[in-house]
Amino acid sequence: MSAVTHRAELEALEVELLIEGVRRQYGFDLRNHSRPLLLRRLRRHLREERLDTFSALQGRVLHDPEALEGLLRALACPPDTLFSDPAFFQAFRTRVVPMLRTYPSIRVWHAGCSSGEDTYALAILLMEEGLWGRCRLYASDASEGLLADARNGVLRLPGEEDARNYREAGGQRALTDYYTRDGDWAVLHPTLRESIFFTQHNLATDASFNEFQVILCRDTLLAYNRSLASRAHERLYESLVRFGFLGLGRKESVARTPYARAYEELEGTGRVFRRTG
């Protein structure tokens, strides 16, 4: 066996032990996370912590809850920008909003809101379409740290590209109408922040907490492997009313989940599915 192969096998063993340690000590179960993604983030975290081996990281994490917090933060995807996927919001505006207009009240759940960029983009869209008055927007994430960021409503200052994305998404005003500049940061207006219900919820472990007419869960399930993603889809399915809308990421689908037959894709929307069964 070559030295490199030996090192690779040792690393694989150390990763297993780290995952097992985190699970038994803190109850965070990373076993069913997407393994290639997990490996990449763990390796980057290791470099940033200037540690040589996962065994060393394991020692630190087991003895120091703050090191665990750092690890979990490193596993989260860094924030996107407002309207980072304009095509989705554009399709939502033209295809879903007209149907939502016929509803007397609308409950919306953004599952896996991370630090809130897409949540705020959605809130802006619903306001511009005159639906905000009858909407209740819930946004959840498994990480308390990210939720705290989302609640703060302070984002990196949008640049020209963000303004362009906003217009491409069908934005009707100026993006600057929605925030106050504070140096390199944008503080979103309180009307936006205060009417979103941010709540801690882990798609991997927590039960459904309400019924919704619209659920967004975009690129969140990339972090899970197939079996865990299927379980998360069970949560989403249970939480969506019949004929409700499910918005997934541009390269996600219900096709490989047990609920493939329960949804119809809205044509030309990228990835908005309607629950029909």
Binding site: S34, P36, L37, L222, N225
Partner: peptide
Amino acid sequence: YHLLVDRSGVCLSRE
């Protein structure tokens, strides 16, 4: 997206 792979198939990443 970054294109990643494991033994069960394609894994995409928004890192």
